[in-house]
Simulated scan of single mutants.
Amino acid sequence: MDKWSILKGRVISEKAFGVQEEGKYVFVVDKKANKVEIKKAVEELFGVEVEKVNVINVKGKRKVFKGIKGKRPDIKKAIVTLKEGQTLKEL
């Protein structure tokens, strides 16, 4: 799997910014990517050392819009912990 297709984007939320001070960054990743691939992609793209990767599969919410039932897509999030003293540059 290509390193550019593994990371789909950053999660922008209050909680994601809170853990950023601890050296943890939250990304939306490809559903088929595993922890090893995510670690390699972050290290190569940002030039940092990754300590560990935690992965969360998030089910999409069911919604009703103008009487039509639908479902948001499922996503996979990765919480990447960097080694002590390392940070990602502003993206």
Rank of each mutant, 00 (worst) to 15 (best):
K77R: 15
I6S: 03
T87L: 09
K24E: 08
Q86F: 15
F27W: 07
V36P: 01
V42K: 05
V53W: 01
K76S: 07
A41F: 00
T87C: 08
I79L: 12
R72T: 11
N57L: 05
K66L: 12
E51G: 07
N54W: 01
I12G: 11
V11S: 09
L82A: 06
K61P: 02
L82I: 05
K3P: 10
V26I: 13
G47C: 02
M1G: 15
E22Y: 03
V58W: 09
R10V: 11
G23N: 06
L45M: 08
V11G: 07
K83L: 15
I68Q: 15
F17R: 14
F65M: 07
K8A: 04
K69V: 12
G23F: 06
I6C: 06
F65Q: 07
I12R: 13
E21K: 15
L45S: 04
V58K: 14
N54V: 10
V26T: 08
L88R: 07
F46S: 00
K83E: 15
N57H: 12
K39E: 02
K83T: 15
N57M: 04
V29C: 04
R10Y: 13
V42S: 10
V26Q: 06
A33Q: 02
E84V: 07
E37C: 09
K15E: 06
K31F: 01
K39H: 08
V29M: 02
I56W: 00
L82T: 00
V28Y: 13
K76F: 11
K77H: 10
G60S: 11
E49S: 06
K40H: 08
I79H: 04
K77P: 07
K63H: 03
K69F: 13
K31A: 05
Y25C: 01
K63T: 09
G47T: 01
G9K: 09
V80N: 03
I12V: 15
I79Y: 03
K76D: 10
E90I: 14
Q20T: 09
E22L: 07
E84F: 04
V42E: 05
G47K: 00
E22F: 03
M1H: 14
G60L: 09
T81N: 13
F65I: 05
F27N: 03
D74W: 05
V19A: 06
Q86W: 13
K77D: 10
L91T: 11
E14V: 10
L88M: 14
V64P: 01
I6Q: 05
G9T: 04
T87R: 14
G23L: 05
D74K: 12
V11C: 13
